[in-house]
Structure formats: structure tokens, C-alpha cells
């Protein structure tokens, strides 16, 4: 199985994602520059965090028009697995691969802290090694993480079990106080209808080493690897 980490001008979590795949998943991984268009050799793609194109226009907007994203749309359309983290989540929303948008945080601050999220759904290739209700500690670092969508989209996300992570407190309660950015319905991560594309604001790749305060993020990458291993066997 081969992983690809897409790199835009301004990506800054690309090496973290690469490290996790090579060290903790133990699989081959390559960086993919945003001008590349051939993704045939990859089984899973990670769109990492950062400030692609300096967040100009809107966070993730200019990256969504880059050559590699046309190929990512095709890749996802064929059922390829795509994980967007932070700026990657913003890019997936701007690309139309995920519904809704991420706007300026409720309190205007850039939030940079460890938060807790509750696993709302284990039925995705990215969470199937996790348990529904499990609480993960992961860092967030963003100014535009406030998830918004219209009422109809929210109803769809809820009824189709596509809200994958919600911000929560230590007891697992999703409350406004535990929500760092004002995201609608405390949404921290969602998936597409086909469940092969997931985006989330927290950084699982920065929560894979005990030294960094949490290794809860490993569950996502182990899920991803297990899914690919099962598909290959």
C-alpha cells in the first residue's frame, strides 16, 4: 500500500504526516507536489495542514484550484481514500468534496491548544479501529475552523451518520465551552456520502507521539492501514 502526502506552497504539516505513515504505519509514502496530476500509484492521500497559498482569498480556496486537486477529485470518485487535516479539511470543503465551509472562529482568535473530540462514528475507513463514544485528545491550530452549513446539509450529515468527530469535554459532553471555534453542532470532522473522504480540524498526525502530549491520533492511521490491508487481501 502506498500513501501520498500532498504538498502546496504553505503546507506545514506535511512532514508530520509523512513521519506518522513511515514510522507508525510502516508503509511507503511520498510527497506529491501540487502541480503533479498522476496519482495512479497511490492507495490513500493525506491533504495536510498549513497555510496553503497564505490562506489568500479564503482558507483552502486557491489550493482547491491547483492541478493536483482535479486528480484528487477523480481519485476520490474512484473510491480512493482521502484524509484532509485542518487546512486539508478546508481544501476539501472548497473543492466540493465535502459539504459546508470553514469560517473565522467564533471568538476571532487563532486557537492553538489540545482539545478533546468524541468519535461519533466508527463506520469509515479512517475510524474503524476506534469505538463510537471514545474520547481522543488532539491539538487544534487554526483561525478558520468554525464549520458552517445550511440546515438541509446538517440534517443530511446527521441522518446519514456522517458527523465523525464532535468537540467534547472530559466527560464526553459536546458543549459550547468545549467547542474551540463555534462550529455548528460542535462538528470537528465529517465524511462524504461514500465515506471515503474525511476531513477534520484537529491534528491526529501531531498526536502520535507520547512525547508530544498524546498518541490518540494513531488510531486514525491504524484504521486507514487496516482498511487498505483488508482490501488488498
Amino acid at each position: 500500500m502506498k500513501f501520498g502526502v500532498i504538498v502546496f506552497p504553505g503546507s506545514n504539516c506535511d512532514h508530520d504526516a509523512y513521519h506518522v505513515i513511515s514510522k507508525h504505519v510502516g508503509q511507503p509514502v511520498s510527497f506529491i507536489w501540487h502541480r503533479e496530476i498522476d496519482l495512479a500509484e497511490y492507495d490513500a492521500l493525506i491533504i495536510p495542514g498549513g497555510f496553503s497559498y497564505g490562506d489568500y482569498l479564503r482558507a483552502g480556496a486557491l489550493a482547491s484550484f491547483s492541478p493536483v486537486m482535479s486528480s484528487v477529485r477523480e481519485f476520490a470518485g474512484r473510491g480512493g481514500l482521502v484524509l484532509g487535516i485542518c487546512n486539508g479539511f478546508q481544501i476539501l470543503c472548497e473543492s466540493g468534496l465535502l459539504p459546508g465551509a470553514l469560517i473565522r472562529n467564533r471568538d476571532l482568535h487563532f486557537v492553538c491548544e489540545h482539545v478533546r473530540v468524541r468519535v461519533e462514528c466508527a463506520d469509515t475507513p479512517f475510524t474503524n479501529e476506534l469505538k463510537r463514544g471514545q474520547i481522543l485528545s488532539m491539538p487544534v491550530a487554526h483561525a478558520e475552523g468554525n464549520y458552517v452549513c445550511d440546515d438541509e446539509t446538517l440534517r443530511e450529515l446527521q441522518s446519514e451518520d456522517r458527523i465523525i468527530f464532535r468537540y467534547c469535554d472530559a466527560d464526553g459532553r459536546a458543549t459550547p465551552e468545549a467547542n474551540p471555534n463555534g462550529a455548528r453542532d460542535h462538528i470537528a470532522g465529517i465524511c462524504n456520502r461514500e465515506r471515503n473522504v474525511v476531513g477534520l480540524m484537529p491534528h491526529p498526525e501531531r498526536a502520535c507521539e507520547d512525547l508530544l502530549g498524546s498518541s490518540d491520533g494513531r488510531g486514525l492511521f491504524h484504521s486507514l492501514a487496516a482498511t487498505l490491508a483488508a482490501a488488498a487481501s
Binding site: I103, N105, L108, N146, G182
Partner: peptide
């Protein structure tokens, strides 16, 4: 209806 925290701060 879309929240505008920047407008609010201004």
C-alpha cells in the same frame, strides 16, 4: 445569517 465575527468585532 452567516456569522461574521470580524464584522461583529468592528
Amino acid at each position: 445569517g452567516v456569522l461574521d465575527p470580524q464584522g461583529k468585532a468592528i
